[in-house]
Write a protein that binds this DNA or RNA. Structure first.
Length: 233
DNA sequence: CCCTGATTCGC
DNA sequence: GCGAATCAGG
């Protein structure tokens, strides 16, 4: 396989949207994770949060010698290579979403989910996340683990931009990357709404992605794990 | 062990 | 330019 413009573009988009090198490699097919990383670097795509790169040059020195004086910092220091555009730690950014495939077996009838009859008209207490999204309160959470959005039941979207579905290649920093449908399916696409600044999703989907922890009490499905990779192709 | 991304270096 | 091998942190 060679790096055609299309493949490079896909690589760029995915890399920039946070996909791991492995995912990208798998998506592209015919290339290894290393190939993707190598290419990304050659393209000048600067590393995003890398696990292995946390120290600064003299972090150790500082640790070893707490008050160690560093008298010689001002050499010519040409700063030739890349200039890191280190990701500016935006807001608190919670943990990334865990998108687990659920597969609605049959189980409990209906997803009363959101519309839960509340006996008393008392207001539900919800915490508010950055940007103003409301986290679901413990009592109104649907599935324990955020599953991929329900199949089919897709567009809760107010209108017709379904016509131009947001595909992987349309992703950028300003639009919601919440996946609708499943990869490999014909109608798989992304939300595409304006993002809640600082998050990868729109305000509405942030509400789904970042939920308040529930007491650990009634844990519906102890082992809801599908296992065996969901390799849909 | 698994996963990451970074780097090196022969091709 | 490419990517396997290797490194190194989580």
């Amino acid at each position: 396989m060679s790096w055609t413009d299309e493949r490079i573009d896909t690589l760029r988009k995915m890399w920039e949207s946070g996909s791991t090198a492995s995912q990208i490699a798998e998506e592209l097919g015919g290339v290894s994770r290393n190939a993707v990383i190598g290419k990304a670097h050659r393209l000048g795509l600067q590393s995003r949060p890398s696990p292995v790169k946390a120290n600064e040059p003299d972090a150790k020195a500082a640790a070893a010698a707490p008050a160690a004086p560093k008298p010689a910092p001002p050499p010519p220091a040409p700063k030739p290579p890349v200039e890191r555009v280190a990701a500016p730690p935006p807001p608190p950014a919670p943990a990334p979403v865990v998108i687990a495939d659920d597969e609605d077996e049959d189980d409990d009838g209906e997803d009363v989910a959101v519309a839960r009859p509340v006996a008393a008209p008392q207001p539900i207490m919800r915490s508010v996340g950055p940007g103003g999204f409301l986290r679901q309160a413990p009592g109104e959470q649907q599935a324990p683990i955020t599953p991929a959005p329900p199949r089919r039941l897709v567009p809760a979207k107010p209108s017709a931009d379904m016509a131009g579905k947001t595909t992987l290649l349309d992703l950028n920093d300003k639009i919601c990357k919440w996946p609708l449908g499943h990869p490999g399916e014909p109608d798989f696409h992304f939300c595409g709404e304006k993002v809640n600044p600082g998050f990868p999703y729109c305000v509405a989907h942030c509400g789904h992605a970042y939920q308040a922890q529930l007491p650990r009490r009634d844990r519906r499905p102890p082992p809801p794990l599908p296992f065996g990779g969901v390799r849909a192709r």
